[in-house]
Simulated assay, not measured.
Amino acid sequence: MTDEIFTTADALEASILPCARVVHSDPNMPATAEQQPLPAAVSKKPVDQKSPAEWAYERLILYIRNFEGQLDTKHEIAMGFAGGDAGVLRIEGLGYFDPDMITFYGRDDDGAKTQLVQHVTQLNVMLRAIPRAEPDTPPRRIGFRLAKDWDEPPAPGRDSAV
């Protein structure tokens, strides 16, 4: 027996996590992350065996990769902050720390190193397309780097690829 309290709300949330749905007013809208099949590496481990941080991290990667796939070469992905004047973070990295923390690494509008550590229950992310910081270099696509190990066998121990 475990000392963990599992509420009705927890049970309800756990029962709907693997589900996804989206409806757009434009029938020609490009496919969204909710409409894509989960990569095999993501669906291999049942959702009820993942921490809230791991499951949030994996879905964020899907959203980031899908968003970046729709950007032209003049733009990169950034993240806006809801409910404050913190500005925008140009996403350079994403991580999680079980059981419930998500971390965003990047730079703000002025190029200052920035890190956001957020509890999964407070997760509220707005993805934004912003002009590239260095227009003469190819765009950096973090979503595809984040997902690269989904097609490779996992390394033993803590993952530190990003």
Rank of each mutant, 00 (worst) to 15 (best):
N124T: 02
M29K: 13
P154L: 09
L123Q: 11
L12R: 14
V125P: 04
P131D: 12
A53L: 11
I5F: 13
H24T: 06
I64A: 07
E58C: 08
P139Y: 09
N66K: 12
P135S: 11
A33N: 09
K45D: 01
I91L: 15
T2E: 12
P37G: 03
D48C: 09
S43D: 02
A129N: 01
E92C: 07
V88N: 01
K113V: 13
I77K: 00
L71F: 06
Q49K: 15
G80T: 04
R132H: 04
A82H: 13
F6C: 04
A9R: 11
M101D: 05
F97T: 13
I130T: 11
D26G: 02
F6P: 00
D110H: 12
D149F: 11
P131G: 04
T121V: 09
R132A: 04
I61D: 00
Q122I: 00
G111D: 10
S15P: 00
R132K: 15
D110C: 06
G157F: 03
W55R: 15
L12C: 03
P154E: 09
D109N: 14
L123G: 05
Q70F: 00
P27A: 08
G80M: 04
I5G: 01
T73F: 07
R107A: 12
S51I: 08
A11G: 03
T2Y: 03
E68F: 00
I61L: 08
G87A: 11
A161R: 15
L12N: 05
P52Y: 02
P39N: 08
S43K: 14
N124P: 00
E58L: 15
R141T: 05
M101T: 13
E54F: 01
P46A: 10
P139L: 09
L17N: 06
L89M: 15
L38P: 03
D108A: 05
E152P: 00
